[in-house]
Computed example of a mutant assay.
Amino acid sequence: MTTLRLQAQATVTTIAASALLFTATAPATATPGSGVEARELYRSSVDGRHFILRDITIGPGGSTGWHWHDGTVIGAVKQGTLTHYSSDCTVDFVYSAGDSIAEPSGPDHVHVGRNLGTEPVVLEVLYANPVGMPLAEDVGAPSCQIP
């Protein structure tokens, strides 16, 4: 074997070992929701997109967990009050019964919804999602703190 080939194999081996070590020791960072129940009401597919209608209930003290969406999400608050935080931990909106919600897609739109009230929050949500993609991509909490 040539020296160049041996160096390339050693580099590949080092990179592979480093990747294995990192993935084996990296902590889980996702922040899953708590106190959330969802019920699918309708599903159809058109032109490479799934359209999924769900009722989502977030109990008092519950949270969606930090996440973003691959597709567009629109919905309405049927009951309760949802406090919506953007990725800088500021409240970007407080939604009450009768309000509509629209969330853009993409990892630059990380957010969390929390029920800070004493009654359940009930949402009716329509996802326009690329086929094969999850409804939400869970992510770790940002470095900022929410009260």
Rank of each mutant, 00 (worst) to 15 (best):
P147L: 06
Q9D: 11
D138S: 09
P60Q: 08
V91H: 09
P134Y: 12
D55N: 15
V131L: 06
E37C: 03
L6P: 00
V46E: 14
P60L: 06
G33W: 02
V122W: 01
G80I: 04
F93N: 08
G75I: 02
P147R: 13
I58W: 00
D47G: 14
T11K: 04
A136N: 10
I74H: 05
L126C: 02
Y85I: 02
R54E: 13
V122I: 12
T83M: 04
V112S: 02
P147W: 04
V121M: 05
V91A: 07
W68E: 03
P147Q: 15
T11D: 09
F51Q: 02
T81W: 01
N129T: 01
V73Y: 00
D88C: 03
H69I: 08
A24V: 06
G98Q: 08
T83E: 08
V110F: 01
D138M: 13
A8Q: 11
L116Q: 09
S44F: 07
T81Y: 01
A128T: 11
D70R: 00
V91G: 02
L116S: 10
L21A: 15
H67M: 04
G117K: 04
L41A: 06
A8V: 10
D108K: 09
L6S: 14
S44P: 01
D88V: 08
S63D: 03
L21Y: 09
V94T: 15
S96V: 10
T13M: 09
Y127E: 03
V73I: 15
E124T: 14
A128S: 14
M1E: 11
A102N: 10
E37G: 07
D70M: 00
A102W: 06
P104E: 09
D47L: 09
A10K: 14
R114H: 10
G117Y: 04
A24K: 14
V112Y: 00
K78V: 14
T13C: 08
S34M: 11
I52S: 05
Y42D: 11
R49M: 08
I52V: 15
A38Y: 01
T13V: 11
S18E: 14
V122N: 06
P104D: 07
S63E: 13
R114S: 03
N129M: 00
V131M: 07
T64I: 08
S34I: 13
P32I: 07
P32V: 07
Y85S: 04
R114D: 04
V131N: 04
E137N: 15
Y85G: 03
R49P: 00
R54M: 11
S45C: 03
P134I: 10
G113L: 01
I58R: 01
T25D: 09
Y127F: 15
V112T: 12
L53M: 13
H111M: 10
S105A: 15
E40L: 06
R43H: 15
A24R: 12
P130T: 08
G65E: 05
S86D: 15
L82M: 14
T29Y: 05
S86G: 13
W68K: 05
